[in-house]
């Protein structure tokens, strides 16, 4: 049985309380709005890419549950300094992780600290909470203005 403490681990609670990179970027090269109509989670993701397609800065703003806030906070920390290709790879791997198709202990991956979200797939109603920021980030890179999880 998966117990709640495996979902609400200290790292997640801490990022919820003090989300990193929780601010607006003044002149982002890329940005998108993410919305989950089911629960009302709502966030903006801002990115600054340099000429080499490296993510120089990434921030977010918005309202949501602990899972969505912590996920966005940890996403921004992970993505800083990464290339767009790496960001896309992380997007794919994170998606596999939270849908239970990637076991971070067995399968090769570049998720690093994000592996902490591996329990989310036990909570099907919460998968979208964890993945909203990633879909929004991907939407920003793909130049889509607004992303809905529905």
């Amino acid at each position: 049985m998966t117990d709640q403490n495996e979902l609400y681990q200290q790292v997640i609670l801490e990022h919820n309380k003090k989300p990193r990179n929780f601010k607006k970027l003044e002149k982002p090269t890329h940005m998108a709005e993410g919305y989950n109509p089911l629960c009302g989670d709502h966030l903006m993701v801002y990115l600054n890419l340099n000429k080499d397609n490296t993510i120089e800065d990434v921030t977010f703003e918005g309202d949501g549950c602990a899972i969505s806030k912590a996920s966005a906070s940890m996403m921004t920390m992970t993505l800083k300094g990464k290339s767009v290709d790496e960001a896309n790879k992380l997007f794919e791997e994170f998606h596999q992780l939270v849908t239970g198709n990637l076991n971070p202990d067995k399968d090769k991956n570049i998720l690093g600290k994000l592996a902490i979200f591996s329990n989310v797939w036990h909570f099907p109603a919460r998968v979208k909470c964890a993945s909203l920021c990633w879909h929004t980030m991907k939407g920003a890179l793909d130049k889509k203005k607004s992303i809905s999880t529905e």
């Binding site: 117990d3 709640q4 979902l7 609400y8 629960c39 989670d41 949501g64 549950c65 602990a66 899972i67 909570f123 109603a125 919460r126 909470c129």
Partner: peptide, 13 residues
């Protein structure tokens, strides 16, 4: 301090 969805998941447990 607790978003309703987090509370929902916690009391469900």
């Amino acid at each position: 301090q607790i978003h309703p969805h987090d509370l929902g998941t916690l009391v469900d447990q």
